[in-house]
């Protein structure tokens, strides 16, 4: 492998990794604050992408507005999911909450198939035009958007968590939910807010990656598996870990795919097993007590 090819594979891997990071950060955010592993994160994004597709084709929404509208739609979906599904089960059992997210995933797939049918469709990239050459690296315009979107999202998320009182409340809940309630923090509205943010991130990630696949109800399945690998690698515990984990997975996957195309996807499962065996805390995990 020449150095130029290596560089190209790495940078292109980073853009894929940025998507895994976006999905993974959303999962970790929801997991750490509400203590629910959201198996529907990928399919939430898939469903929102269908909504975006509908906006473009049927409602004739201008292309420039679609990204913002899709993020807003994601937030609304997250809000509704928390308010009308998670909240009523929260007091019962933790396992049922997790099962509920699995059900939610199927629900989104079913809804997408029912409303828009399962025919694969092409979803055009948000920005078009010739790839850009930076030194030896050739990068598509959409890839640059993806990288920027991941960086901006990470920045906004950081500011939210560490500079706003709602963010501080979310972190406090992740450390000691009982104490947060005792102090009078309105935990239900924080949960709703976190689901809204997490789902909006799912929508953003799906919308950015869909041009690489075709739009069909199952297109986020594999992406979600990779995002899970990313958060296991990052240590489950931190949004930062999920981001770094996602980038590493993206790069490694791209390099492996170049040398051994056949094992590209199964390789990630090997990574999960190895990480869990050798480094169960992940790269940035601090054990149980720290959750955000």
């Amino acid at each position: 492998m020449s150095i130029d090819i290596f560089l190209n594979l790495t940078v292109r891997g980073l853009t894929t990794g940025a998507i895994y990071a976006l999905v993974g950060m959303g999962i970790v955010l929801i997991l750490q604050t509400t203590n629910v592993m959201n198996f529907a994160q990928g399919d939430t994004g898939m469903f929102i992408t269908y909504l975006a597709f509908f906006m473009i084709t049927t409602a004739k929404v201008p292309y420039s507005l679609v990204l913002i509208l899709a993020i807003a739609a994601g937030a609304v979906v997250g809000l509704l999911v928390e308010r009308f599904m998670m909240r009523s089960v929260r007091s019962r059992s933790h396992l049922s909450l997790i099962m509920l997210t699995l059900g939610l995933s199927l629900l989104f797939q079913g809804l997408a198939a029912f409303l828009f049918n399962t025919e694969p469709r092409l979803f055009p990239p948000l920005v078009s035009g010739d790839p850009i050459k930076i030194g030896p690296v050739i990068l598509g315009r959409q890839d640059i958007v993806v990288l920027l979107a991941a960086i901006v999202t990470f920045g906004i998320l950081y500011l939210f968590l560490y500079r706003t009182k709602q963010g501080a409340a979310a972190r406090s809940i992740s450390q000691d939910e009982y104490a947060a309630r005792v102090l009078g923090i309105p935990t239900p509205s924080i949960y709703m807010l976190i689901w809204a943010i997490g789902s909006a991130m799912a929508g953003l990630a799906a919308l950015l990656i869909v041009p690489r696949f075709s739009l069909e109800p199952s297109f986020m399945g594999l992406v979600q598996v990779k995002a899970f690998t990313a958060i296991v690698l990052g240590g489950m515990g931190s949004v930062f870990g999920a981001a770094v984990g996602g980038l590493i997975i993206g790069v490694v996957e791209n390099l492996v795919a170049y040398q051994f195309p056949a094992i590209k996807d199964s390789f990630m499962l090997i990574v999960i097993v190895i990480v869990l065996l050798v480094l169960p805390q992940g790269l940035f995990g601090k054990g149980q007590q720290r959750r955000l």
């Binding site: 406090s172 450390q175 009982y178 104490a179």
Partner: peptide, 22 residues
Amino acid sequence: PEGRHIFPDLTVEENLLLAAYI
């Protein structure tokens, strides 16, 4: 509450501010 329930990873100031959330 019993057992103090301080948020271990939040600063003293953040602990205090959260108690006056409203």
